[in-house]
Nucleic acid binder design. Structure first.
Lengths: 167, 167
DNA sequence: AACAAATGCTTGACAGCGCAAGTATTCATC
DNA sequence: GATGAATACTTGCGCTGTCAAGCATTTGTT
């Protein structure tokens, strides 16, 4: 019933790296929540949900797709949509193609909330993550995070960017 | 009252990198919690607290030091110590040097719990983070995480490693 | 066509965390 | 050496998240 035999411990560099990563994973989400909570009175997850809707066709997504896109569980999304609905930023519609499914739709007020909130949030992301790094490090981080993500969640999906400038 | 004027948006690479990082920050903590919860019936934060104590002189730390070391708030640590105390892995002692302070001490049973849990946890960290990366990428991640951490928490402290082999 | 299994979402019960207030001890000042 | 401010920790309360159960709809089977 034992699976471990002579575990491969982390060497000094690996251990240091691990502690650094733990620290970032602990503090960065709190910092993002703090900025959004202070300046826009929403959580980072709530922002993420609305941002994903704002990038979607018809500003609409099925609940389960939206949950995956925003990296949250379905119950968590359901309750988040409750809150956003109460504030008038999102509404629910039954999916005409599948009676079991529910569509979340960003309202006009929700769109404006995202537009008003985005600049401050992007500035914070720049300040905390992008600007402290060199351009080369940003590319390195892209590849590193991609590898870790695949190890953690082999079948996770990333939002398909709406081709900001190019075709 | 406006602070934003023509925000500097993220370019495609920066945006992709940001989404990758969000995904990792969302899923990796859950994956660590899942392994520890499944194999050792403790949360990652609880493990972190005990691991930090196990590295400390006399297996003892002041609550506030321990909270900073484990990247948590003092109320969070206080309640975590409650739970670990109830399970017999940690005890509280008043600090003889400062009557306000409380010392958390890892018991023998707690030490054994860490020893029993560490191999499986390290294996998971390897599987999810270290092994998917090249040696160069581990070094890159170290520097990248260090820069982000300083931007997020200028005065954060990292555990001083007990010089695993060298002096 | 009818029934069972699977899918998509919601919800009740419960646990954990943060905030702010509370308590106890130490430090600083006069 | 008293009194007020500061520090260290704990705790009551509310919010949010997870887990498991529940309900409705669709799909697959006979």
């Amino acid at each position: 019933m034992d699976a471990e035999q002579e575990p491969r411990w982390l060497d000094a560099v690996e251990q240091q790296t691990w502690f650094e990563l733990i620290a970032v994973m602990s503090w960065l989400p709190d910092a993002l929540d703090a900025q959004l909570s202070r300046d826009a009175d929403i959580s980072h997850f709530e922002y993420q949900v609305m941002a994903m809707l704002s990038m979607s066709a018809q500003r609409t997504r099925r609940m389960s797709d939206l949950a995956a896109l925003a990296n949250g569980s379905l119950p968590r999304l359901s309750r988040t949509i409750d809150r956003l609905d109460r504030r008038g930023w999102v509404t629910r519609r039954p999916d005409p193609d599948d009676g079991r499914a529910t569509l979340a739709v960003l309202t006009d007020a929700g769109w404006e909330k995202v537009v008003a909130t985005a600049p401050g949030h992007v500035a914070e992301v720049r300040r905390l993550v992008i600007d402290p790094l060199t351009k080369a490090q940003v590319r390195q981080l892209h590849e590193i995070a991609n590898r870790i993500r695949h190890a953690v969640q082999p079948d996770a999906c990333l939002p398909t960017l709406p081709a900001p400038d190019g075709p």
